[in-house]
């Protein structure tokens, strides 16, 4: 921070900078409606979307569907995090293990989670398991790959320090390798969370009777475009919120890293 400008002023001006564009877009949007340029059925104005939002919030539908989607994401994401980090550490530490699993991983990785939907419906039906499985698949690979990467990037200079002091294997992994890999693991978790969130909506769009994706699909069939928008905006806002939470955790865990 430069000069003698008050920190309050700086905070406000940075906030204005942050929200200016979204508000300008909203104003433009509403203006288009007022001028009668677009058909409300295709692009309902923000005021109507806000009303739909209030209605869905009021009758509890929005929170119910959001809650169901969040639960699915949590289950799938936690399973992916546990397995992805665990397997990532094992593969990062053992060249033999990595070599033996590499081809399978490389072949599975490019398959989009959505491509698994037909198969999971056959396997699990359209119940909870199929969604959680899709989410798991989506979040697993980014977490796994970033964990392996982080471990591979262990600083050789620190490896030498550990050798010089004859550090035990366990201590070497817990004090040198894992903390060093943590930034990369956190990147994987944040990316995995984003994919998980995208997967749940996609899975619910295809086959579900609840969840935020279902809400959107259901509203489209009823030609309630304003509710479609409510669903989409909720997805965006929730995704952003989840990332903020993970970023907070990341800051806390990696406080030692000097930011620039």
């Amino acid at each position: 921070m430069k000069g003698r400008r008050s920190p309050v002023f700086a905070k406000i001006s940075s906030l204005v900078l942050y929200v200016f564009l979204p508000f300008a877009l909203l104003a433009l949007w509403q203006g288009l409606f007022a001028l009668g340029v677009v058909r409300p059925l295709l692009l309902p104005p923000p005021t109507r979307i806000a009303a739909a939002f209030a209605e869905l919030l009021g009758n509890g539908d929005l929170l119910r569907h959001l809650g169901i989607s969040m639960l699915r994401v949590c289950e799938g994401f936690l399973a992916a995090a546990a397995l992805g980090i665990g397997l990532g550490i094992a593969l990062g530490l053992s060249r033999t293990l990595e070599k033996s699993l590499d081809l399978v991983i490389q072949l599975m990785k490019p398959i989009p989670p959505i491509a698994w939907v037909p198969l999971t419906i056959l396997w699990f039906g359209i119940g909870e398991e199929s969604k959680v499985f899709i989410i798991f698949l989506g979040a697993f690979f980014p977490i796994l790959m970033n964990t392996i990467d982080g471990i591979r990037q262990t600083d050789v200079r620190f490896v030498e320090v550990a050798r010089v002091f004859e550090t035990s294997r366990w201590r070497f992994v817990s004090r040198v390798v894992l903390p060093g890999a943590l930034p990369s693991i956190m990147t994987g978790l944040r990316f995995g969370m984003m994919v998980a969130w995208m997967c749940v909506v996609a899975a619910e769009l295809v086959a579900a009777s609840s969840g935020i994706g279902f809400l959107i699909m259901d509203a489209r069939q009823m030609m309630q475009t304003d509710q479609v928008f409510v669903g989409m905006i909720t997805i965006g806002a929730t995704g952003k919120l989840l990332d903020v939470v993970l970023r907070k955790i990341e800051r806390r865990l990696i406080a030692w890293k000097v930011e620039f």
Binding site: R157, E160, V161, R163, V164, R175
Partner: peptide
Amino acid sequence: GPGRDRGVVFQEPRLLPWL
């Protein structure tokens, strides 16, 4: 091989930044 009967100080401090 290395051993704790020798202490080493490197060119750069090589302190673990997270400790």
